[in-house]
Computed example of a mutant assay.
Amino acid sequence: MDASHPVDPDGGPDPATGRATPGFRHEALVYDDVEQLTSIAAPWLLEGLSAGDAALIAVGPAATGPLRAAVGADPRVMVVERHALYRARTPTAITAFRRFAAEHAAPGHRVRVVGETDFGTSAADWREWQAYEAVVNVAFAPHPLWGLCVFDAALPEPVLASVRRTHPRLATATGRAPNAEFVDPASYLRALPVPEEPLEATRPALADDAITDYTGLRHAVRDLLGTVDGPPDVLEDFLMAVDEMTSNAVRHGTPPAGLRLWTAPGRLVATVRDSGSGLDDPFAGYGPAHGEDLSHGGMGLWLARQLCDHVAIRRDGRGVSVRLSTSWG
Rank of each mutant, 00 (worst) to 15 (best):
M1Y: 02
P255L: 11
R76L: 14
P282D: 08
H219A: 14
F283R: 00
D208T: 06
A42V: 07
A84I: 01
T172G: 14
V159M: 11
A201Q: 13
F97S: 01
D184E: 15
M299W: 02
R99C: 00
A139G: 00
H252P: 04
P13F: 05
A123D: 14
R165H: 12
P142D: 09
R190L: 14
G253V: 08
A284D: 10
H109A: 09
G287T: 11
D14G: 02
A106T: 02
H290P: 05
A141P: 03
D32V: 15
V30L: 13
W302L: 05
P156N: 07
G115S: 04
V114G: 02
P6Q: 03
P204G: 03
I94Y: 03
G258N: 09
A173S: 14
H104K: 11
H296A: 15
E116K: 05
A63R: 05
R218H: 13
L49G: 05
L224Y: 06
D237I: 02
R314F: 00
V250L: 12
D316P: 03
S295R: 15
A264K: 02
A154W: 01
L148H: 03
C308R: 04
N179Q: 05
T121F: 03
A153Q: 09
P158N: 08
L145R: 00
L155A: 12
P178T: 09
A105L: 04
A69V: 04
A28S: 14
T254D: 13
H26G: 04
G329E: 14
A270C: 08
P22D: 10
R251N: 12
A220D: 15
A16T: 08
L294N: 08
T95D: 11
D33K: 09
L303T: 12
Q130P: 00
P256T: 06
E157H: 10
